[in-house]
Each structure stands twice: as structure tokens, then as C-alpha cells.
Amino acid sequence: MNAITHSTTETTRGTALAGKYMTFRVGGEEYGVEILKVRELIGLLEITRVPHAPHGVRGVVNLRGKIIPVVDLRTHLGISNDNAAARPVIIVAQLQTASGPVTTGVVVDQVLEVRNIAAAHIEPPPSFGREDEATRFILGIAKTDKRVVLLIDLDLVLAETNLSLVA
């Protein structure tokens, strides 16, 4: 999806991105993920650390008998742990990878709401000209109700997580 949207014009970008998003907070920033990717929300699960796992993987949890990896968005986005929530929430998402769909947990500080975001409110993210900028995960910036929601590409987050372990 991201490959296509990056190459298309801004209007089609907005149209392609319009839809329902679940918004959540990481640090002081508000992000949105396409609602269709979200399977469920879980809290209060102890995460088992996996030593030598790729950077950005917090560990694994037991999701009703299935063991799923949990990705920490802070690492990917470069957000410090300073004001991390005491009780984080795990968003369980079905993400697409080259080898098929993978159920993955994503740790966030707080889940906010589900909202409809119209094409007109979506703007392209700026690039700061660095390779490691967090902007690469951002599909678009949605402005509504005086708030800004960063629409995040979780597929790419997972893809980069898997990439970093090959290197």
C-alpha cells in the first residue's frame, strides 16, 4: 500500500487513506492505524523478553494460547521512555509481510478512539532528508478538531523489524 501511495498524487493519496482509524498515544504524539488491521486490544499481559530479538521487539505474549511478538513503537519512532504509561496497552494487529499475514502486538501508551478521517483532512508527511527519520512510517497527517493524527504504516514497522534481524 505504501509503495503505491508514495508515488501517487496528493489527492489520490488522501482518497486512498480516507477511512476509519483507531487512534492511540505514544509519548506525547497521537497516531492512527487503519481500523481493519486491528484485531483486538489487550492490556495487563506480562511481556516475556526475548534476548537477541531484533531491536524494537519487546518480547512475546500469550494471546489465548498463541504466542505473538510484541513490537515497541517507541524504538521505531525514536520516542524516549520518559513519560511511558505505567499500564501500556497492546494493540493486536494483523500485519502483512512478504511471507503472509502475521499477528503482531504493538505496545502503545493509551488507546484513544475510533474516528472517521476524510480525504480532505489528510496531508502528506514532510521529509526531513534523513534516512532514519520516523516520517518514513507515516503515511499521512490528518488534521481534525484542532488535533493532528499521524497515520502510521504498521506493515512497514514490522517489515523493518524483520529486516533488522537479517543485518
Binding site: 526475548v50 534476548p51 537477541h52 530479538a53 531484533p54 521487539v57 518480547g59 512475546v60 494460547g65 498463541k66 504466542i67 505473538i68 511478538p69 513490537v71 509481510t97 511471507s99 502475521v102 503482531t104 514490522l158 523489524t161 524483520n162 534481524l165
Partner: peptide, 12 residues
């Protein structure tokens, strides 16, 4: 259970 994808090689 398999450790599954997304946690790297996890060879240990």
C-alpha cells in the same frame, strides 16, 4: 509452541 515470526532468528 513455535515462537513464530517477528522475533528474529532467535536461535537460542
Amino acid at each position: 509452541k513455535a515462537l513464530g515470526q517477528g522475533v528474529g532468528k532467535a536461535e537460542f
